[in-house]
Simulated assay, not measured.
Amino acid sequence: MTIHVWRLTLEPVGNDVAWSLLLNNGTGTSAVDAGIIRDTRNEEHAAMDIPPLAGKSALLDPDHERGLATLLGRRLLPPMLREALEAGTHTLYVATRGWLANLPWEALVIDSDNRRLIEAAVLVGAMSPGIIATRVRTAAPFTPTGAGLAIVDAGPPRNTARQDYSIYPGGLPVGLVTDLAADAVAPGDYSMSAEMAGEALTGTPWSRLLYLGHIAAGHQDEPAATALVFQRRGEADKLTAAKWLAEPQTWPAPARVALIGCGSDDARFMEASGLPVAAVNAGAHLVTCTRWALPADAPADASGPTTGLARAVLHAHRSAKPVHALRAWQVQQLCTWKKRPTPEVSPFFWASLATYLAPETNP
C-alpha cells in the first residue's frame, strides 16, 4: 500500500498567503505546485472568532463552524490536494506561521459532502528542520513499557485576582486519577516548583511526559515568554520557553511530550522559540500541544471536554502509533459532532491539538 506523504507550507505575506506543496510517494520528494492566495483578509478576520472570547467561539456553533471550515478549506487547501485526498492513504504535514497556525486544520472541509481533512489524511505539524538539526540533546527511543511522568495542576491554588492558578481546585477527577495510575503523578496538590520539575525529569529515564495545567501566554514580540506554571510558596513559579531553551539539561524531555493547557503551541508567533521548540531542543521526538486557550472543566469532572482531551492524548502517547491513535479519537469526536452537535464534541476541543514529529537522531 502506497502512502502519499504531503507537505503543505503556508505563510502570510502582507494580506496574501504564499504556499507550496511537496509530495513523496515512496520514491523521493518532489515539488508539486506553489502559488499565492490573494487577499486573505476575510479569512484572517474569520480566524479571530476561533479563540474563546467570553466563553464563545465560532467552533462551538454548528452552522458557524461549518461555514468557517468550508471557507478556510476552499481558500487555503490547494485544489490539487483536495482532489488527491478523494482516494488513497495520505499523511499531510502542515507548516504554518502567524494567524494560519491558529486554525483548526483537522476540521477544514474538503468537499461538498462536508468531509473533513482529518477524515482523509493523518495530519502532522511540520517543524523547521533547522530546529531539529541544532537541538542540544535527543531522548532515548520510546518504549511501550517505559515509565511516564504526569505533571498535573502544578500551579498555585486558585485566586480569582490572578490568572495563574490551579485548574482542579477540588483535587484531580477520579477518572483522570484512574488513567494516570500507571504513571508517576507529580503532584496534583499545588506543591511543585520549576526546580522540582527539573529534579523529577532528571531523576528517572522517562519515556513520556504529560504536563496538564496552566500555561502563561507569550506574545508576538517575545514568544519565548510562554511558560509552564509551577508554584513556589503559593506563588506562580514559571518555566519560560526561553529558560527551557537555555537549560535543556536541567529539564530534559523524554521521547514523547504533551503540553496541555492554554495555547501551548508557538507556531502562531512569527519566531519559533516557544514551548514545543524548547521540548524538541531538550530531546523530545514527538510533542502534542494546544493551539488556543481551553476552559477549565468543573471541579472533579473527569468527563469534561478539556479533561477528556487530556485523557485522549495520554492514551495516544502510550500507544505504538500515537498520531494515528489521536486521529482515531478526533474522527470519533467529529462523527458525534456531525450527528449530534454539542459543545463538548465540537472542533473547538479536538481540533485544538497540534502534534509535531522530530527524528530520533540528529541528521
Rank of each mutant, 00 (worst) to 15 (best):
3 I>C: 08
13 V>E: 11
16 D>K: 05
22 L>Q: 15
26 G>Q: 05
30 S>N: 01
38 R>I: 11
40 T>R: 04
42 N>D: 02
43 E>F: 03
46 A>I: 05
51 P>K: 05
52 P>A: 13
58 A>G: 15
71 L>H: 02
72 L>V: 10
79 P>G: 13
83 E>P: 00
95 A>F: 01
96 T>G: 06
96 T>R: 00
98 G>N: 08
99 W>T: 14
110 I>E: 00
123 L>T: 06
126 A>R: 07
128 S>A: 14
128 S>C: 09
141 P>M: 02
143 T>S: 12
157 P>M: 12
186 A>T: 13
195 E>S: 14
202 T>Y: 03
211 Y>E: 14
213 G>Q: 04
213 G>M: 07
220 Q>M: 09
223 P>Q: 04
223 P>A: 03
226 T>S: 14
227 A>S: 15
228 L>C: 07
240 T>R: 11
245 L>D: 06
246 A>T: 10
248 P>W: 10
252 P>K: 08
253 A>N: 11
257 V>L: 11
259 L>S: 05
262 C>M: 09
264 S>E: 15
270 M>A: 00
275 L>E: 02
281 N>P: 01
295 P>V: 04
295 P>W: 01
296 A>K: 14
313 V>W: 02
323 V>D: 14
323 V>Y: 05
334 L>V: 03
335 C>N: 04
335 C>R: 02
339 K>G: 04
341 P>D: 13
355 T>H: 06
357 L>P: 01
362 N>M: 14
363 P>C: 10
363 P>T: 10
